[in-house]
Amino acid sequence: MNSVFVYCEIEDGQVAEVSQELMTKGRSLANELKCKLEAIVIGHQLEGVEEQIFPYGVDTVHVADDKRLFPYSTLPHTSIIVKLFEEQKPQIALMGASSIGRDLGPRVSSALHSGLTADCTSLVIGDHLDKKQDKNYENLLYQIRPAFGGNIIATIINPDCRPQMATVREGVMKKQVLDPKYKGKVVKLDVAKYVSDADFAVEIIERHMEKSKVNMKGAPIVVAGGYGMGSKENFQLLYDLAEVLGGEVGASRAAVDAGYVEHERQIGQTGVTVRPKLYIACGISGQIQHRAGMEESAQIIAINTDPEAPINAVADYVITGDVAEIIPKMIKYYKKNTK
């Protein structure tokens, strides 16, 4: 049976969070399909990178190591993957829906004439009966994704072309090490056979990457603010509450767009997905794109002046009122009750 492949992104010598999540998902798909899980890593100075990859249950890791392959650029990475996939013929290929994956995935899928489903929120194996052709397809990948601004959820299949390719955002799948001692094999690719000089047409002149400082996905409590916080200064209330409760601060896109808070804190369809023990939504209306990133939280408190705010429909506790009044009270009574 053909394999499931995961493209591993590398940041500062570390396999990206989203790739770890996809390997976890890839392993469970491979188990169900009774096939191997393989990974491909492309970059420079990758000695030992397999140690970060095998624990997720990867059977074979293909490594393309060359100084021209870092930082990422579209054409050489595409050439390597396209040729490797032509040789290996995976049945499924997964990539992060990151700046890299969403640049690379479509180019690879176009070259291979395979389908690509963007931003999947769920991937499951299932059968499909094509009534017109009276043909039954077994073990297809159901690629489930929101579209239409998040107002519909579509199940996409790719019956005839391989690989079945999908991108998934960071934080959507859960990551879990299968076995820290799992051992697979390493295949080093002869890079010169995969890339040509023409692949280096785009030159990177300058690059400034920031390490992510916030760890919202790991936070047990997320205190999120929306446009209803009213100002950057008022966001301080959220940092105060998050600090006493031991949580992180998140935000809606409207709050990010208004400049109240940095982009990496955005929660939702085009931000991160969080599943904390407690989510406190402050001055957030709860549009579908926002809810997509938080509605699996174990408990949700919504604080909003509007008793009809859509966020209330997913909340366990609805507090109708002004954030500026309520948040200080929450801090006060939390302190009082934990003394």
């Binding site: 395979s114 389908g115 107002n151 519909i152 959820i153 996409i156």
Partner: peptide
Amino acid sequence: SPTKVKKVENVVL
């Protein structure tokens, strides 16, 4: 088109 829409659900709150 390699990809086909098998099913579409509207998000109902």
